[in-house]
Deep mutational scan, measured.
Amino acid sequence: RCGYYVEKKKRFCRMVVAAGKRFCGEHA
């Protein structure tokens, strides 16, 4: 899952990502 920290939401993104990727499409 995406490891991007969403500052405005004060939590991690947690969106599912493709195999081998660290971030989702929105945060890549």
Rank of each mutant, 00 (worst) to 15 (best):
F12M: 15
A19E: 14
R22A: 09
G20D: 11
K9V: 15
K9N: 13
V6P: 02
K21G: 11
F12V: 06
R11N: 08
C2F: 06
A19F: 06
A19W: 02
Y4K: 02
R11M: 11
V6K: 05
E26F: 12
C24R: 00
A19S: 09
G20P: 06
E26Y: 01
K21C: 04
A19P: 08
K9F: 15
K8H: 07
A18P: 03
V17Y: 00
V17E: 04
G20K: 13
A18Q: 05
E7Q: 12
R11G: 09
R22N: 11
G25S: 08
A18K: 09
V16R: 09
G3R: 03
H27T: 11
F12H: 03
A18D: 11
G20A: 08
K8S: 14
Y5I: 11
E7I: 02
V16A: 05
H27R: 08
C2A: 01
V6C: 12
C24D: 13
C24E: 00
C2N: 02
Y5K: 07
M15W: 05
A19D: 05
K21T: 14
K21M: 05
K21R: 07
Y5A: 01
R1N: 15
C24H: 00
F23L: 12
K8E: 12
V17H: 04
K10C: 01
A19K: 07
K9Q: 15
V6M: 06
G20S: 10
K10S: 10
E7Y: 05
G25Y: 15
Y4T: 03
V17W: 01
K8L: 12
V6I: 15
V17K: 03
A19M: 03
K8V: 07
E7D: 03
F12L: 00
Y4E: 13
V17N: 08
V16E: 13
G25N: 05
R22G: 07
E26W: 08
K10L: 08
G3K: 02
A18Y: 03
F23N: 02
R1F: 15
K8W: 11
M15V: 05
A18G: 06
F12W: 07
V16P: 15
E26I: 00
R1H: 15
G3D: 00
R11F: 13
V6Q: 14
G20E: 09
V17I: 01
Y5C: 03
M15G: 12
C24V: 01
R11T: 14
V16T: 10
G25E: 10
R1W: 05
G25W: 05
C2M: 08
A28M: 04
E26K: 03
Y5W: 12
F12R: 03
C24F: 04
E26R: 05
V6W: 08
G20C: 09
F12G: 09
M15L: 06
V17S: 06
A28V: 15
V6R: 06
M15C: 06
C2D: 01
K10T: 02
K10F: 06
Y5R: 03
F23D: 01
C24G: 01
Y5S: 02
G3M: 10
G3N: 12
K10A: 09
Y5P: 04
R22V: 04
Y4F: 10
Y5D: 01
C24I: 12
R1S: 14
K8M: 13
K9P: 10
M15T: 09
R11L: 13
